[in-house]
Nucleic acid binder design. Structure first.
Lengths: 251, 251
DNA sequence: TCAAAAGTGTTAGCCATACACCCATGC
DNA sequence: GCATGGGTGTATGGCTAACACTTTTGA
C-alpha cells in the first residue's frame, strides 16, 4: 500500500498497511494484478489500511474483495516490509507526483509506514478489476514483464514468489488459481512459473496423479490444435486434506 | 512484547512491537528464553518497540542483545500477530496485575497492538539472561514444559516451531545453536525436537555428512558414560553456502 | 504427410527406510 | 558380562531424472 491514501481519521491503525500480491493465471502465464497511478508513470500493488477492530487477514480480504470482487480465496501472509528507507523522502515526493495528491491535505504521509505482505491466488476469469481512488486502471501484468512500480513493490512481488516457491514444498497449489476444469499442462505451467524452471512433463503428470488430489474427467479439452488433452479437476476433499497435513513435493 | 511498556513518547512506531522467540539448546533439550512477570503469575517473550529510524530486523536484534548480550546470531522474522482479540480488555487487565503497572501513567495501552514475531537460534552457554524492567527474572524453559504465558505468547511460540520446521527443508540449522564442537547426537536432538519425531540415527548421520557442512574432528567427546562419540564442527564456509543456496533436507 | 502436443513406457541411479551387526564403556 | 550408546554396513523399495516411443490432430 502506498501511504498516501487518506487515513479516515481514527478508524485505522496508524503506520501500518497491507499489500496484496494477487496472482492470476492466463494463457499459461502467471500474472499479477496492479493499479496504475494517476499520471501513468508508475504502478502499485492493491493495498489498504487496517480498521481498528478487524484482523490483519480480514483487512487483506477486504482489499482483495474491493479490487477483484472475490471472496474466499487463498490468501496468505508472507512477510512484513518495514525498512525505514522504504518511505524515503525522495520516494514519497515521486509518489505525490504519480498519484497527484494534495500535499496540503495530507501532511502525515511523511511518516514511516510498514506494510504486511499477503499473496493471493485467484481464478483469472472470475476477477473484475476495479481501480481504487488513487488509480486510473487496474490490470493484470505478466510476472516477467512488470512495469515500473512505486516504493518497494517490486521487492514485495519478488519476495512473494520466493516464499510461494518454498510453500510449494509442503502445500498443493492451483485451487483458486485454475478454473474448475483444466489440463495438466495448465497446472504444470503454474509450477514452472513459480519455480522458474522447466519440469519434465511425464514425471510431473505421474507425480500429480500419485498425490491423489486430482480427478481425471471423461471429457477432453477441445479448442486447441493438436491432440486433445484430458481435463482434470481438483478433488476438493483430498486437496484440503493435503493442504492441511502437508505433503512432500520436492521439486 | 506486551504493550504495557512505556513508549518513550515520540521515539517509537505506534501500535507495533517485535517479540523474539529465542531458542537455545541444552541437555539435548530445546529451550526458550522467557521473562517472568513481577507477581510471578505469568511469563512472556522478550519484546520491544521499534524506533522511528530503525529497521524491524534491527529492533529485534536490539531486543535480543538486551536480554542475552549476544550479537550476530540467526534471527528470522516469521509471522505477524495482529488479531484484535489479542489485546482484549480482560487480557490487558490481567497483564496490568501481573506486571504491576501504574494504570494512571499508561492509559494508552488499551489500544490495539500488533506484534512481529522473530525467532532466534542462540548458543545456550553464551547467553547471560537479563530481565527487563517489567520482569523479575529471565530464564530458559523447556519447549515442552512451558509455564503460563501472557496474551497470545504461547501461540507465537507454537507458530515459531511450525515455521522453523518448514525452514528445515531448505536451510541448515545448528550454527549459533550449538557450541563450536558437538556430537552428532546433539545435532540430531535439535532436529528431532523441532520436527517432533524420532529420526533414524544411522540415516541422520549419513545425510548430514553428505551435505558437506560438517567437519569431523580427531578428538572424541569424553565425559559421558559408554562409548566416546566423535566431535564435529560446522564448516562455516559450506554452511553459509548451503544456507544461501538452499538444500533439500526432506525429513 | 508432417510437426507439435499429449499420452505412455522404460531405465538407471539415487536416496530414504529399516534394520543388523559390531565396538567401547561403565556399572 | 551386560546394558547402553555409538559407529558402520546393507537390502529393499520408491522416487526422480532423462528420454524413447506412440497417438492424435490441424495445417
Amino acid at each position: 500500500m502506498n501511504p498516501l491514501e487518506e487515513m479516515g481519521g481514527e478508524n485505522y491503525l496508524p503506520g501500518v498497511s497491507v499489500d496484496n500480491v494477487i496472482f492470476g493465471f492466463h494463457d499459461n502465464q502467471l500474472k499479477v494484478l496492479l493499479l496504475e497511478s494517476k499520471n501513468g508513470s508508475h504502478w502499485m500493488l492493491p493495498g489498504g489500511y487496517i480498521q481498528k477492530d478487524e484482523s490483519l487477514d480480514t483487512a487483506a480480504s477486504r482489499v482483495l474483495l474491493d479490487r477483484t470482487g472475490l471472496k474466499k480465496v487463498f490468501l496468505q501472509q508472507f512477510h512484513v516490509f518495514g525498512d525505514p528507507s522504504r518511505s524515503k523522502e525522495s520516494l514519497i515526493k515521486g509518489a505525490i507526483k504519480s498519484l497527484q495528491i494534495d500535499v496540503a491535505k495530507t501532511h502525515w504521509f511523511f511518516n514511516r509506514f510498514i506494510t504486511i505482505g499477503y499473496y493471493a491466488l485467484v481464478e483469472f476469469e472470475k476477477v473484475i478489476p476495479v481501480p481504487d481512488k488513487h488509480s486510473t486502471s487496474c490490470a493484470w501484468k505478466d510476472i516477467d514483464k512488470l512495469p515500473p512500480l512505486i516504493f518497494d513493490h517490486h521487492e514485495i512481488i519478488d519476495r512473494a514468489l520466493v516464499d510461494m516457491r518454498h510453500h510449494l514444498n509442503y502445500q498443493p497449489i492451483g485451487y483458486n488459481l485454475l478454473p474448475r476444469e483444466f489440463t495438466m499442462k495448465n497446472l504444470q505451467s503454474i509450477y514452472e512459473t513459480i519455480l522458474g524452471r522447466k519440469l519434465d512433463r511425464s514425471n510431473f503428470t505421474r507425480k500429480m496423479l500419485a498425490s491423489g488430489i486430482l480427478d481425471k474427467k471423461e471429457k477432453l479439452y477441445t479448442g486447441g490444435a493438436h491432440k486433445a488433452p484430458f481435463l482434470y479437476s481438483f478433488n476438493k476433499q483430498e486437496y484440503f486434506k493435503v493442504l492441511k497435513e502437508g505433503f512432500n513435493n520436492e521439486f
